[in-house]
Amino acid sequence: MSDAVQVERRGAVMEITLNRPKVNAIDRATSVALGNAFCELRDDPELRVGIVTAAGDKAFSAGWDLKAAASGEDEEVGLWWHTDYGPGSFAGITELWDLNKPVIAAVNGLAIGGGLELAIACDLIVCADHAYFALPEVPLGIVPDSGGLQRVPKRLPYNIAMEMLLLGRRMEVDEAMHYGMINRVVSSDQLMPTAREWADTIAAGAPLAVQAIKEILRETESMSVKDTFSYMREAEFENFPKVLQSEDAKEGVAAFAEKRQAHFRGK
């Protein structure tokens, strides 16, 4: 693993820390390393949930490393996706469509441009109270095409999303919380304890059920409720059919009836 991406396993939880001083910008090598980490989370049956955060207390990530791009180190600015940015494309997760395990973003500081796109690709977002978000691409002559255009308008009212996209204006965490773009705001010293508490809660659940939820929501996001029901019954999902016939389902029901803690094995 790259020195810029540090990975620690804590039981069934993988913690991924971006560590590129001063602002944790993401160049191509870092993107590849992030992608490899998220693929390890995806592929290891012993892992059930991930946390992504960053070193320091100033920046979660300032996004794409523009200095590397301008120097030609990461190819010239242009159709960047023709260059190998690793599995999951930019930041390793923004296009990792087969990652069915939940990822929690613990946003420890500013998340701008690609940093916001990394955070918003995650399933839960907890922020330190001094963090903020912005999409400053337009004045640079580019667009936020790794999730800013695709995900932000789905998380915010259209006109507010357009303020961020067109004006590049800064959004504080309280406002992001108000609109539901993030889940919680905490003090800096409670950031990782909160993320770990959430991760442990998820890890204690039935893995197939957790993965089926993420799988179904991703595949049916743009469908009507009626079409979603039909698609769930007829589509060839990886996890959904397994859940209903799993040993974990039997264990969960038995544990409820016997008033004891369930012990799920992902089978």
Rank of each mutant, 00 (worst) to 15 (best):
L191S: 08
L79G: 03
I112N: 01
E40V: 01
R28S: 02
M232K: 10
A128W: 02
A254E: 13
G148Y: 04
D189G: 12
A134Y: 05
H82Y: 10
R28A: 07
A12L: 00
P241V: 11
G35A: 00
F264R: 00
Q261R: 14
G50N: 12
D98G: 00
M162E: 11
G180P: 11
P153H: 04
E175Q: 14
T94L: 07
P87I: 08
V243F: 05
L217Y: 07
V7M: 09
P144C: 02
M232Y: 06
E247I: 12
R218D: 12
W97N: 13
A262L: 00
Y158P: 01
E238F: 06
N19Y: 06
G147E: 05
Y85W: 15
M14Y: 07
R184M: 15
V225D: 14
R170G: 00
L124N: 04
G92C: 03
R20N: 13
V49A: 04
D123Y: 00
G147V: 08
L66A: 15
P136M: 05
V7L: 08
S246G: 09
V253E: 06
R9T: 15
E215N: 06
K101H: 04
A195T: 09
K22H: 11
A176D: 09
I202M: 02
Y132I: 00
V107M: 02
A119Y: 04
T220D: 09
A105L: 08
A29T: 13
V210C: 00
L79T: 10
D44Q: 02
E76D: 13
F60L: 09
K154A: 15
W81V: 13
A212T: 09
D248E: 10
E73S: 12
I160G: 01
A68T: 12
P87D: 10
P157N: 04
H178S: 05
A69C: 11
I142Y: 06
R260Y: 03
D129T: 03
E236G: 11
E236W: 01
G113D: 11
Y231Q: 13
R20L: 02
A33P: 04
G113S: 15
E76A: 14
K22N: 08
G141K: 02
